[in-house]
Amino acid sequence: MSARTRLPAVLLAALLTGACGTAITPTATPATTSTPTTTTSTTTESAPATARQVDDDGFAAIRGTSVALRAPEGMEVDDDLPGLRRPDNRTTIVVTTTFLPEGKSAAVALDEAAAEYAAAGGTDRGTVYEPPRRTTAAGHPAVAAIGRQGTDADAFTEVSVQFVADGYLVRLTAAAEPSDPLSADDLLAALSGARWTTPPGPGVEVTAAPGYQRVWRPQEVWLSTDGTDVMGVPKLVASRATGLLTVPVEERRAYAEDWFANLPTKSRADSVTEVSIGGHNGYEMIGYGPYTTFFTMLFTYDGCILVVGDFDAAEHPDQVPVLRTMTRSVVPV
């Protein structure tokens, strides 16, 4: 299947766009080559930067986020940002989202955002900001700041807006080159008028093995031995993708192997096992090496369930039996 869609599930820092819905990236380490063993018996590419069809209200979804923006005239979606870009100059609008630390309130996060803009004489990455203002964006309380970046002769106008929604700190940053027709007020209106769609939850539950703790994440079940996402620590992440095209039975193994091949930790699986968990059939794959990767894809009537775990084999005892036990406990919700 060639169509790929993206649902948010992050194993460490980067995102790997996947076909059956979720984006999961284990701890990166050089791939090794081995011959897979099996107990049973299409590489796809991400979309290039391009204009995207907008909805009836003129809003375009920003890939990898829950934000939609009404593109100012002449700007189009650029998935590489992610955000919007004017193709004939350097004007951009960039969307970033980060997890709000557990226990931190939206009010505290916005106070910190305001302090960020006001700190160090109002400079940030070479941008001189006016005093921040309180506003709203996507229907949420927000902090906004307007600034200038660069010398007087060729200074960019920069507008930044931050708000909190569903456990995420969302930052929208617009930068317009001097010749751009958009004013600072135009950019502020575009950012403040953003839409936010509440992202789906994990869609699954997993029983934690002894010694594993839940790490707070809004869109996946994330378990690790120390309750953190520190690199190399044994971990398991699970998420469910729904509302997607189903994969024909005869294509499922190749489909799962393609997914595994795109994980940075391994180029191919050392073992492939057909499994059935909770009435859902799929494949378990293991790649051994400095970082051992444990991967399971289960196919549902409307998508799939993805489970990925990894650990530093030099620092921790074999976790494969534990990761397998937790995977066998996966229940769709």
Rank of each mutant, 00 (worst) to 15 (best):
residue 257 E to D: 10
residue 285 M to C: 08
residue 276 S to W: 00
residue 286 I to L: 14
residue 239 S to H: 00
residue 308 V to K: 07
residue 241 A to L: 01
residue 302 D to H: 03
residue 318 D to S: 03
residue 234 P to T: 02
residue 246 T to M: 11
residue 269 A to D: 06
residue 247 V to A: 13
residue 301 Y to M: 06
residue 307 V to W: 04
residue 286 I to M: 05
residue 271 S to C: 02
residue 296 T to P: 05
residue 311 F to E: 03
residue 238 A to P: 00
residue 321 P to W: 03
residue 270 D to F: 03
residue 269 A to P: 07
residue 306 L to M: 06
residue 283 Y to E: 09
residue 291 Y to K: 04
residue 304 C to R: 07
residue 273 T to H: 09
residue 233 V to G: 01
residue 308 V to S: 13
residue 319 Q to W: 03
residue 292 T to S: 06
residue 267 S to W: 02
residue 293 T to W: 04
residue 261 A to I: 06
residue 251 E to W: 08
residue 251 E to N: 14
residue 238 A to Y: 00
residue 252 R to K: 08
residue 289 G to T: 00
residue 279 G to V: 10
residue 268 R to M: 07
residue 259 W to F: 13
residue 274 E to R: 13
residue 303 G to W: 06
residue 237 V to Q: 01
residue 277 I to E: 13
residue 259 W to K: 12
residue 284 E to C: 03
residue 233 V to M: 05
residue 321 P to A: 03
residue 245 L to S: 14
residue 297 M to R: 15
residue 264 P to H: 11
residue 268 R to N: 12
residue 257 E to Q: 14
residue 295 F to Y: 14
residue 263 L to C: 08
residue 274 E to P: 01
residue 316 H to F: 14
residue 279 G to F: 11
residue 236 L to Q: 01
residue 233 V to T: 12
residue 316 H to C: 00
residue 247 V to K: 14
residue 283 Y to V: 05
residue 246 T to G: 15
residue 250 E to L: 09
residue 284 E to M: 08
residue 284 E to S: 11
residue 249 V to G: 05
residue 279 G to K: 09
residue 279 G to W: 13
residue 280 H to G: 08
residue 262 N to E: 14
residue 269 A to C: 05
residue 301 Y to V: 10
residue 309 G to M: 05
residue 273 T to Q: 12
residue 234 P to W: 01
residue 237 V to T: 05
residue 253 R to W: 04
residue 257 E to N: 07
residue 320 V to F: 04
residue 320 V to E: 10
residue 238 A to D: 00
residue 292 T to Q: 06
residue 316 H to M: 01
residue 292 T to G: 03
residue 312 D to R: 02
residue 298 L to F: 11
residue 314 A to N: 08
residue 314 A to I: 00
residue 276 S to H: 04
residue 247 V to M: 13
residue 282 G to N: 09
residue 319 Q to P: 01
residue 244 L to W: 04
residue 307 V to T: 12
residue 236 L to W: 01
residue 242 T to S: 13
residue 235 K to A: 09
residue 267 S to A: 14
residue 271 S to R: 12
residue 289 G to D: 02
residue 267 S to P: 02
residue 316 H to D: 03
residue 238 A to L: 00
residue 312 D to A: 07
residue 303 G to L: 05
residue 291 Y to M: 09
residue 301 Y to P: 01
residue 235 K to N: 12
residue 237 V to N: 02
residue 248 P to L: 10
residue 275 V to C: 09
residue 306 L to C: 05
residue 268 R to Y: 01
residue 302 D to G: 04
residue 240 R to M: 10
residue 299 F to T: 11
residue 269 A to F: 05
residue 255 Y to I: 01
residue 314 A to Q: 07
residue 305 I to Q: 10
residue 262 N to T: 14
residue 249 V to F: 10
residue 297 M to D: 12
residue 249 V to I: 11
residue 284 E to A: 14
residue 280 H to I: 09
